[in-house]
């Protein structure tokens, strides 16, 4: 079934089985493997992308439901060779260890800052409450987001 989908400002015309999730299409049809599958039930957030300005688990939405929406994935955070300030802050604060949760974590944080440029610590934690990380204990991640806010 034909699907026209806009990902990272590029429009793709694809043939996609209606049962495929957005995550499957991003990873397998478009080769955008930044979003990961960690649980397949919307609990871990490793597959988080931004859809129409909001953080969404791409494992919890069918690909065809994303027609006409504007999808942003981690691959588009870097613009013209320049990293997003969140990416810089993640690097500077040691917020990355194994890196498997990182793309989803970044997209949750990016969505937060797009909608709320000056969040409190509490709001940061709630923004990533659906993003699990086993390496960092979240501490350096929260610290990184705070630094990114200051560097706006």
């Amino acid at each position: 079934m034909e699907l026209i989908i806009n990902v990272n400002d590029i429009e793709y015309k694809l043939d996609v089985n209606p049962r495929m999730r957005l995550l499957d299409v991003l990873r397998e049809n478009l080769g955008l493997t930044g979003a990961k599958e960690g649980c397949g039930e919307g609990e871990c957030g490793a597959c988080t992308i931004i859809m129409d300005g909001l953080a969404i688990n791409s494992c919890m939405v069918l690909a065809h439901q994303a027609r006409g929406k504007k999808i942003i994935t981690v691959e588009a955070l870097e613009q013209d060779g320049e990293m997003d300030r969140l990416q810089e802050a993640f690097i500077n604060n040691g917020a990355v260890q194994c890196g498997y949760c990182t793309p989803g974590m970044l997209m949750s944080c990016k969505a937060l800052l797009m909608n709320n440029p000056n969040p409190t610590d509490e709001e940061i934690k709630i923004a990533i409450e659906g993003n699990l990380c086993r390496c960092t204990g979240y501490i350096k991640i929260v610290r990184a987001v705070k630094e990114a806010i200051q560097n706006q």
Binding site: T33, E37, L77, M83, Q87, F90, I91, T102, P103
Partner: peptide
């Protein structure tokens, strides 16, 4: 010194390929 992990740039940009990402 606190220096970031060696592949941090590839990780934050989503470019690093894990086994599940291999084709």
């Amino acid at each position: 010194k606190s220096i970031p992990i060696h592949d941090v740039k590839e990780k934050v940009s989503g470019k690093l390929k894990y086994a599940a990402d291999m084709q």
